[in-house]
Amino acid sequence: MTWTEIAGFVTGALCVWLVVKRNIWNFPVGIANYIFFFVLFIGAGLYADAGLQVVYFGLALYGWYSWLRGGEDHTALKVHNPTLPQFLACLAAVGAIWAAIQFGLHRYTDSTVAGWDAITTALSLVAQFMLSRKWIANWWLWIAADLIYIPLYAVKGLWLTAGLYGIFLTMCIVGLMEWRTARAKMLAAENPAT
């Protein structure tokens, strides 16, 4: 266990809790988390996950703006569902990103877990984009990624990080339920029964 793993644990748990609560401060806390995990993953040979932290950084900046000004007339973005074509495009993006990253890891690195590293990276990238748009379906991709991340980090000996992703998994399930409830309440308030 290193200081970067501990710092990643603390900032990661706080970030996801803030996301569950739909709190805008998840983005600056997330940026700190991405820096800690970038350093950790480079040291563990999880190169795709390290690269993912760089992309997360950019997506966090986009999400921060989007949550504040991405709604109608540049207002705050509300929790909502993607359209079916948007969701299918996201799933197609997961497949394309997975294939590209796996190819790159096999060809250019000494990764021993290229396929698993690639699929978790692909799921996480698309989930982070979906989160930036405040789409409820982001939680399903995070759940799928966490179910793979937990044993992957355990195999790499990153026990604290594996435990953190166990916590993330639980928080994702809570987040899914809370965001669905928030959406239902918002719709009920917009369309009261007559």
Results as ranks from 00 to 15, higher is better:
131 L>G: 15
119 I>N: 01
142 W>Q: 00
115 G>Y: 02
179 W>Q: 13
153 Y>K: 03
178 E>L: 03
130 M>P: 06
175 G>M: 02
132 S>A: 13
174 V>M: 13
122 A>F: 07
128 Q>W: 09
151 P>I: 04
114 A>Y: 10
145 A>H: 09
142 W>Y: 07
174 V>A: 12
149 Y>L: 07
159 W>V: 08
160 L>R: 06
123 L>D: 04
158 L>A: 13
145 A>F: 04
125 L>R: 07
122 A>R: 04
162 A>H: 05
163 G>H: 10
175 G>C: 13
159 W>E: 07
130 M>C: 05
171 M>C: 14
137 A>W: 09
115 G>P: 08
169 L>F: 13
136 I>E: 07
166 G>K: 09
141 L>F: 11
124 S>R: 10
120 T>H: 04
131 L>E: 08
122 A>E: 07
178 E>C: 04
174 V>K: 10
122 A>V: 11
168 F>Q: 08
155 V>M: 07
145 A>V: 09
156 K>F: 15
169 L>G: 13
153 Y>G: 01
164 L>Q: 15
133 R>S: 05
151 P>F: 02
121 T>G: 08
174 V>F: 14
114 A>R: 11
141 L>D: 05
172 C>N: 15
146 D>V: 07
138 N>C: 13
116 W>P: 12
117 D>C: 10
124 S>Q: 09
139 W>R: 05
128 Q>C: 13
161 T>I: 04
179 W>Y: 10
132 S>G: 15
